[in-house]
Computed example of a mutant assay.
Amino acid sequence: MPRYIVDRIAIGRYQDEVQHPSAIKAFVAEFISTLIFVFAGQGSGMAFTKLTDGGSSTPAGLVAAALAHGFGLFVAVSVGANISGGHVNPAVTFGAFVGGNITLLRGVFYIIAQLLGSVVACLLLFFSTGGLTTAGFALSAELSIWNAFVFEIVMTFGLVYTVYATAVDPKKGDIGTIAPIAIGFIVGANILAGGAFTGASMNPAVAFGPAVVSWDWANHWVYWAGPLVGGAIAGLIYELLFIGRTHEPLPASEY
């Protein structure tokens, strides 16, 4: 890894990255944004299952999931962008970290906030629907676990690469204003491409909440390892090839 990338990666000071009022606001923003996103995405799947026989496994269910997640993520990123950067995803946070755009301490607390937001969203759905199950992610029968692992890597790579291109890149210019739309679109498109195979998580928090509430951990590691690897690769490639800067990392409010 080039030295300028290594030099940009930092642990951070606890007082600045965790205890500072702006950091606490950022953690709360990540919690709320993830709650909004997971509630909309999981809720749409539960509603479609209730209203139809085939549920989300049908073509119509897949389209509904893509739309709900795309719209939900657009809103979640938009409302958190000016406070925390609107990561809403541990893979995005990890990709930002390996590119030197967030410190380790702040990144860890972002991820904790995202996971808590997902769990609370699923608990709210469980209680408000009278005990309906929040469905966990599952692999298609014809897919091996390693196929699924690669699928999640590729889909998350596309997501985090889009985040870098539209939100992190200091040369983004006016395109930064449509970053939430672009990010929502790539998630919706990936769900259409991979939803029938892996569920198209691309986000460990999205998989974690339903797994906790339903207590179904089958192949759960795929939904962590795949997105984190894909996010890291996207962050490194974009930072090395297209940014290549040597100045200090961007503040959290700027990406």
Rank of each mutant, 00 (worst) to 15 (best):
G195E: 11
F185Q: 05
A29Q: 05
I181S: 09
A10M: 10
Y110T: 02
T103V: 09
R245I: 07
G95S: 10
G43Y: 03
A68R: 08
N190Y: 06
I186P: 01
T198Y: 06
V187T: 12
G173Q: 09
G131P: 01
H69G: 13
D7T: 15
A10C: 09
G86V: 14
A218G: 10
V79Y: 04
A135L: 00
V63A: 12
A60R: 04
L67M: 04
V229W: 06
I111M: 15
L143N: 06
G117P: 01
H220P: 00
I178P: 00
A252M: 12
N82D: 13
I233Q: 06
T103P: 02
C122S: 03
A40D: 01
F94W: 14
E248K: 11
S56C: 05
I186W: 00
F27Y: 06
R245Y: 04
S128L: 05
S78P: 02
Q19L: 15
V163L: 06
M46S: 04
F71C: 15
F126Y: 13
G72S: 12
G107Q: 09
T49C: 02
L236Q: 07
I32P: 00
P90E: 09
V28W: 10
K25E: 11
G184P: 12
V213W: 12
T177R: 07
L35W: 04
V229A: 14
I112H: 12
Y14V: 13
A141N: 02
A76W: 06
L159E: 05
F208Y: 03
A10N: 12
G100R: 11
T177Q: 09
N219E: 10
S144E: 02
P249N: 06
A91N: 09
D7H: 14
S22R: 12
L236K: 07
D16H: 09
I111R: 08
S84A: 13
M1V: 14
V108N: 05
D53W: 07
A23F: 08
V120E: 07
V160G: 01
A200N: 08
N82T: 15
G136W: 03
I9G: 09
W146R: 04
P251D: 12
G72K: 09
P2M: 11
V187D: 00
